[in-house]
Design a protein around this nucleic acid. Structure first.
Lengths: 334, 334
DNA sequence: AGCCTCCACGTAAACGTTTACATAGCTTTA
DNA sequence: TAAAGCTATGTAAACGTTTACGTGGAGGCT
């Protein structure tokens, strides 16, 4: 079944009576080769069942055609699937350019993350797209000699390309809608503010409040761990403050919120209104269907990949900074 | 910021006054080196900010330390997140053994899949774990010279290691429970039977029926595209057949089922009972929470990775076939 | 003292490509 | 017809490791 020997370009060359250079050029179309010679080479490759050794190619050409994506991507109790959609977007453009995608999981944890960056080594990847787990860490000293594009979040003092979501504007818009509907006591539930994203969402919330002349009540703001249970517990304790609406900036925590409200038969939006982050299919089958902020996850990936490819193409080009706008999908929970 | 030159093992050797062999052995711990020399080498590596070139290493050692996972993995309208959990499982064991994971998306489509296998090339990966999109395709002629472990599904005539879920037993168990609760008209909703998994689930359904002396009514069996909308539509038309229970073997289609039932205010389980496949967090926040079949997704990945590592270790060892048992989680929809 | 063993390390080939440089034969030009 | 140019291909170095083999010297043994 398996060819016991490994067929190299040399074997092909010998079998076709040409030089290795010619074979290489036939494979890559990198210089003119007569039709007749091409035919012979292809014939030889077929005969021998030749497969190119991409490792050798990478070594010599100093290009691996691999892009890594480092993010809290893999499924776990506390993960939402936002970054999966991002990965799909990245994949879709890389594929068109014959690039591979390596997914690395950061666990949203600095230690894991640093480790992964190290494992990626130097010549293994041509570029790194990452959603940094920390704002404070000095990533620069971890990186190898490849371009880096930040996605979704940006660490402090970065001079790199980045592609993020305009979280502040859409969060403000969501809260403004709640205010417009007459809500004055709007609770805010979020994961830790260690990320630029959560910061921005918080800022949008605050700005909407203040512009409407509403005071921010710190009793209504609850920061917690990102998990369903955490969302559940926070909702329970927050309700003692008698909010009339909840703005929850994390998808997984939102499940906890809905779990609690449903279990306690608290009717939405009559007794309390809810707006959550992220549009996933499950948000359509709660009762009532949720009003959510839809982040352009796929497009985020697409844009980041495009930026990466351009950066590889021209390392000296000016830095790119993209802020994609998110979308408020109004359903029946608000 | 970036070191303009690429530091190689030669530079380190020169700087430390030793040979490249010694540096290599220090890095890999592959033969004795005196403490003093080790110190010098480490010092030199730090001074020069040396990073190993894993491509060159792979070329020479003929090991890439990369395992690919090929499955319909990335998010899209029709994808469920089952394989993400699997990937997490694979990742967890590979990481412990210093292996990398490359995720490839098959789109559940033979053409894409074949393409991906080709792109993986020959020396790029040390092994391939895959959930084949087809039972019929002759995968053997696509593979390179690496071990392959099938996961979740197995193509016809395969002689490879595989790790799957015992779908038949658990499906039978689920249907038996419905029967035990007095149901006689149990609808069956599923994606296309092109996979061994769906076949097995169907077989379990049928066997439970026949062992209970119930006739299988083909009007109650509906095969359709895997999507929320498809699930919605199928439920709509299936209800005309007056089933008292629904067994839906796909997570995404299950959302469609619940969407329809909720929209039409059909109460579960009073008017109709529901059992669905796959335990995800959203199944806990429907009303009522769903009775589901929990596939050991993470464990599937773990086992597949373990099998792969053993296979790499000993290519001649006897083939391994693992069937993991799934779990019926009884909540309030049945 | 001669020989052997062991210790700690060095030398250089090899992995399979890509690619700068070279070249043989033919055609064109003056 | 000699020089020049073009066409199609060949030669061999280089990419950065790993590793089989070799070696100088210190110490032990007889």
């Amino acid at each position: 079944m398996n060819d016991s020997k490994n067929i190299s370009i040399k074997d092909v060359a010998k079998h076709a009576n040409v030089s290795t250079a010619t074979v290489s050029h036939v494979i890559n179309g990198t210089r003119f080769v007569s039709e007749e010679t091409k035919r012979k080479v292809h014939q030889a490759m077929d005969d021998l069942n030749y497969r190119i050794n991409s490792v050798a190619r990478s070594l010599r050409s100093r290009k691996s055609h691999v892009i890594a994506f480092l993010a809290p991507i893999l499924a776990s109790e506390t993960s939402n699937y936002f970054f999966m959609s991002v990965a799909a977007g990245i994949q879709s453009v890389l594929k068109q350019h014959q690039y591979h995608l390596v997914l690395s999981d950061s666990h949203e944890e600095e230690q894991f993350e640093s480790n992964e960056i190290r494992m990626l080594g130097s010549q293994m990847i041509d570029g790194l797209i990452m959603a940094p787990a920390s704002r404070e860490l000095d990533y620069e000293r971890l990186f190898g000699d490849y371009p880096v594009v930040y996605l979704d979040r940006v660490p402090n003092n970065s001079y790199r390309d980045f592609v993020v979501v305009d979280n502040k504007t859409v969060s403000k818009e969501a809260v403004q809608m709640l205010i417009g509907n007459g809500h004055k006591r709007i609770a805010y539930i979020s994961g830790p503010h260690t990320l630029t994203t959560t910061e921005e969402r918080h800022a949008g919330y605050l700005e909407a409040l203040s512009e409407a002349g509403l005071a921010a009540d710190s009793e209504l703001i609850s920061i917690g761990e990102v998990s369903l249970n955490s969302g559940y517990k926070i909702t329970e304790s927050l309700l003692k403050q008698q909010p009339t609406a909840i703005f929850v900036t994390d998808n997984v925590m939102a499940m906890g919120v809905m779990f609690y409200l449903q279990e306690k038969k608290i009717s939405v939006p009559e007794q309390i209104a809810v707006i959550a982050y992220d549009e996933f299919q499950w948000t359509r089958i709660t009762s009532p269907p949720l009003t959510v902020i839809e982040q352009p996850a796929f497009e985020l990936g697409v844009k980041a990949a495009e930026v990466m490819l351009e950066r590889i193409d021209d390392p000296e080009a000016p830095m790119q900074e993209h802020r994609l706008t998110a979308n408020l999908i109004v359903r029946h929970s608000s």
